[in-house]
Design a protein around this nucleic acid. Sequence first.
DNA 1: AATGAATGAGTATTCATTCAT
DNA 2: GATGAATGAATACTCATTCAT
Lengths: 218, 218, 218, 218
Amino acid sequence: MDMERSQLGGNDAREAGKRDLILAAAQHIFSKKGFHQATVEEVAEAAGVGKGTVYLYFPSKKEILVALIEERLRDLAQALDARVRAVGDGLGACAERLRAVILLQLEFFKRSRDFLTVMSGDIGELGQELDERTREARRAFLKVVESVIREGIRDGEFRGTDSWLATYAIEGMVMGAALGWTMREGLLLTDEHVSQVVDLCLHGIAGEGGGPHTCTSP
Amino acid sequence: MDMERSQLGGNDAREAGKRDLILAAAQHIFSKKGFHQATVEEVAEAAGVGKGTVYLYFPSKKEILVALIEERLRDLAQALDARVRAVGDGLGACAERLRAVILLQLEFFKRSRDFLTVMSGDIGELGQELDERTREARRAFLKVVESVIREGIRDGEFRGTDSWLATYAIEGMVMGAALGWTMREGLLLTDEHVSQVVDLCLHGIAGEGGGPHTCTSP
Amino acid sequence: MDMERSQLGGNDAREAGKRDLILAAAQHIFSKKGFHQATVEEVAEAAGVGKGTVYLYFPSKKEILVALIEERLRDLAQALDARVRAVGDGLGACAERLRAVILLQLEFFKRSRDFLTVMSGDIGELGQELDERTREARRAFLKVVESVIREGIRDGEFRGTDSWLATYAIEGMVMGAALGWTMREGLLLTDEHVSQVVDLCLHGIAGEGGGPHTCTSP
Amino acid sequence: MDMERSQLGGNDAREAGKRDLILAAAQHIFSKKGFHQATVEEVAEAAGVGKGTVYLYFPSKKEILVALIEERLRDLAQALDARVRAVGDGLGACAERLRAVILLQLEFFKRSRDFLTVMSGDIGELGQELDERTREARRAFLKVVESVIREGIRDGEFRGTDSWLATYAIEGMVMGAALGWTMREGLLLTDEHVSQVVDLCLHGIAGEGGGPHTCTSP
DNA sequence: AATGAATGAGTATTCATTCAT
DNA sequence: GATGAATGAATACTCATTCAT
C-alpha cells in the first residue's frame, strides 16, 4: 500500500507543501461546487491525499476556507503593498498607485479566477465567528487600498470623499468588473478592459467635458 | 404596494400572503445564518407557519432562495425602469438617469439590508442549474442599468467604454459601497454618502483638476 | 363550490356507496403502487372525493386496507360457501365441491386482479395488530375450503392428510397459479388452464399410471 | 462458501463479512416489522454497526431488500440445482427430483422462516424498477423448478400440462404450505407434513382410487 | 356531510470527523 | 505521518391526519 506515490521518489510533492496542495485543491473544488456542496473527500482526492490527511493540516473544513481566504488575501495585500511602494512620490503618484492597485488585482483574479469565485460566493456561508476572521483578513487587505486613497485625498490628488467609502466602492468596482466579465465571457479582462476599469475608477463614466456637473469651469 | 392582498383585511397573517410571509422570513433567516446554516424549520417558525406549509408554497428549500432572488430583483428592476423613464430627455438626462439608478438601489438596499446580504453571500451555494435561474434574473436586472449606460454613450454623455463592462463595474461599486458600509457601520449610507457614490461613479476618484489625465483644459 | 358534482342530480354516486367508491379506488391504487407508496390523496382523487372525506368513512389509511381485505374475503367466502352448498351429496361430491372452490376463486381473481395483487403484496406491511384482523378474515375464508377438504377426507374421497395443511397447500397452489400467470401473461387463466389447475389439485402432477408410487394397482 | 473472508479469522464481526451481517440483520428486522416499518437504524443496530456503515455497503434501504432477495434466491436456486443433478436418471427420476425440490425448499424455509416472511410480504412494496430486479431473481429460481417439471412431462412421468403453470402452482403450494403452517403453528413442518406436501404435489388430494376422475381403470 | 389548507412526526440519507492500523 | 473504514449528528422532505369553513 502507498505504492503508487512512493515510487516517485522521496521529496516530491509530499513533504514540500502538502498543506498548499490541499489549499489549492480546496480553492478549485470550492469554486466549482461551492463550499457546502464540496466534500472534504473531494478536496482530498483533488489534492492527491487521503481524507484523514486533510485533518492533519486543518482542524476542520471551515478552517480550510478561512485559511484559504486569509492566506490569499495576505499574499495579495503584500503584493499590492510592494507595488504601491514602488511608485515614486512625484505629481500624480497617487493616481499611479491606484492604477497599480487595480491592475494588480485584476491580474491576480485573472490568474486565480477560482479564488475570485470563492471570495464572492462562499464567505457568507461561514458562521458568525469564522466569518469574523475572514472579515479581519479582508479589512487588512482593504487597508492597503484605503491608505492609497487617503493619501491621495490628503495630497489633493483625489476628491475629498470618505476614504473608506471610496475604498469599498472602488473595490466593488474591481470585483464587479472581474466577476461580471468572468461570468459573461468565461475569461478575464483584456488589457483594454483593464484600462477602461482604471479610467472608470479615476474619472468616472461621465465624458471628460460632457457631464452637466463636471468641469463646468469657464 | 401589497395592494392585492392587504385590501382583503384578513384577520391575521393567514389569508394575506402566506407565501410572502415565508419569503420575508427566509430573507431574514438566510441573511443571518447563511442559506445552508438556515433550516427550513427555522424559516417556517419565523414565518409563523408549520414546516409542512412551507412545502405547500415552495417545492424545496433551494426554490425559496431562487424565488426570493428572482422576485426581489424583478421588483427592483421594475422600480429602476420606472424611475429611469421618469427622467426627461434634455441635456444631461443620462447622467440624471444613472444617478437615479444608483440612488434607488442604495435606498433599496438600505431598506432591505437582509436581501443585500443574501444576494452577496448565498447565490454561490446554489447548484449549477438553479444558479442559472438567478443568473438570468440578475441579467434582466442589469439590463436596465446597461441600457442607461449604453444610451449615455450613444448620446456622448458617457465615455465610450464597453457598456457591459461599465455596468458590471458600476453595479459592483454600488454593491461594494452598500455592503462595505453595512459591514462597517451596521447601518447604511447617509445622503451625503449616497452623493459621494454618485459622484464617484460619474466623475471618478480623481479630483476635478487633479488627475494627470483629467480636465487638462487651459 | 361543489358545483361539478351536485349538478348531476341527487342520488348519483354520492349517497349510494361513497364508502364503496373509496374501497374500489384504494384497491386499484394499492395494487398499482403498493400500500405504502400510495397516498391517501391519490385514493381520494381516484374515488372522486376530497381527502377529508376518506376520513369520514375510514379512521385511518390502514383501516382502508383492512376493510378492503375483510370485505372482499368475506364476499368471496360467502360466494364459495353458496357454490359449495349447491353441489349435491352424491358420489364424487367432494371433488366436485373442490373443483367449484378452485374455479370460483380463479374466476374471482380473474375479475379482480387488483385484489389479488393487494392480497399477495400488501398484507405484510400492516403492523402486528392490524395484520391480526386480516389474518382472522383469511382464516374465516380458508375455513370454507378446509371444511370441503375435511368432509372429503371423512367421506374417503380425499387422501387422509392433515386437512389444514392440505388447505394451505391448495390455496397456495391456486394463488400461485393465478399470480404467476398474471405476472407472466398479464392476463388470467383460460378455461384450459383452470382445468389443469383443478386436475393438478385433485390428481397431482404425476401421470395417471406414471409415477412410481401411483396407481400401482394391477 | 464465505471463503474469502472467513479464512482471515478476524477477531470479531468486523473483518468477517459486515455486509453479510447487515443482510442477516435486515432479514430479521424486515420479517418482524415489514420493510417500511423497519428503519435503517434498527437494521444497523441489529447488525451491530453504525447507521452510516450500512450505506457503505448498500446505496439505499431498498437495495438492501433487493440484495437480500437476489442473494438468498440465488443460493436457493444453486442448492436446488445441485440436489436435482444428484438424482440419477432411472425410472421415476423426475418424481424423485421434484420431491427433492420440494423437500429442499421446505427445509430452507424451515431454517429461514424470516426470509419466507420477507419474500411473501415485502416484495410488493418495492417500486416498479426494483421489483423488476427481484422478479428476475425469482424467475431464475423458478427456472430450476420448471426444468424439472418440463423434463418430467417430456419423459412421460408427469402429466402433460403447461410446465410454467404447473411450476407456479407447485411453487404456490410449497410456499402456501410453509407459510400457512408457519402462521398457524409458529414452527415449520414436520417430516410427516413434508411427505404430505410431496404426495399432494405428485398425486393430488383425491384418494388413490377415489376421485371420480382418477384411475377409472377397470 | 364535504373539503383541502395546514400541520409536524417520522426517517432516509449525507458527510464532517475520528481513530485503529 | 498517512490512511480510509466507521460513525452518528443533523436535516430536507413526505404524507397521514386534523379541523375550520
